[in-house]
Amino acid sequence: MAREIQITIDCADPAGLSAFWAEALGYQVQAPPPGFASWDEALEAMGVPPERRNDASAVVDPEGSGPRLFFQRVPEGKQVKNRVHVDVRAAPGLQGEDRMAALEAEAERLVARGATRLERHEPAPPLGAGHLIMADPEGNEFCLD
């Protein structure tokens, strides 16, 4: 039986990082519970004090097929390279210079939203199609693939 999965990311600013990843993936910030117009309204009703209202955030695929990304605030900063990372498939079906141009365009778009460009790996057939290594606004590595 297939399972639903959630990818959890430790961070300092859950709301900020969820907004970045919603934009990067074409996702949306998860809606508040039914009956509430906003998360602030829902958290107020739950008795969550204002200073704790950015302890967590989540983004979801609006079509319901991709995994939920959950962002949780932790006290420590990022220490080392990620052992697991997200690959953003920004150039499916493209090859060579067309592929790299599409990846570069997506990198430029995400840098404008707070990402950092780290490395470019040129196509190396037959197995290496070429990709870009990026970091999100908190330094978590991801690939544009």
Rank of each mutant, 00 (worst) to 15 (best):
W21F: 05
A91E: 10
R117H: 11
D13C: 02
Q6P: 00
A37E: 15
A107R: 14
A91S: 15
A56M: 14
L118E: 10
G66R: 12
G139D: 03
E119P: 00
W21Q: 05
Q30D: 03
G26H: 06
A107Q: 11
E76C: 05
A129F: 03
R83Q: 08
A15G: 04
E138L: 06
E63F: 07
I133C: 04
D136V: 10
V86I: 15
S18D: 02
M134Y: 02
A115W: 04
V29F: 00
A102H: 08
E63S: 14
I9S: 08
L25Q: 07
P50M: 01
A56N: 07
E23N: 12
V80C: 01
L94R: 09
K78S: 01
E63R: 14
E41I: 05
L127R: 12
L144M: 08
R120I: 11
F20M: 08
A129Q: 15
V88T: 08
E51N: 09
I5F: 00
D136G: 13
E122C: 02
V60R: 14
A45I: 12
S57A: 15
E122R: 05
A12K: 14
R68G: 03
E119L: 14
A90G: 15
E51S: 07
R83K: 04
P126K: 12
A19T: 14
P33R: 14
A12V: 03
R73A: 09
W39H: 15
V111H: 07
P34F: 08
P92L: 03
D145N: 08
S38L: 03
A37G: 11
G47L: 12
A24G: 07
P62W: 08
R109Y: 00
A37W: 02
R89Y: 00
M46E: 12
A115P: 05
Q95Y: 01
A2T: 15
H85S: 09
R89K: 06
A24T: 06
L103M: 12
G26C: 09
A115Y: 01
R89A: 11
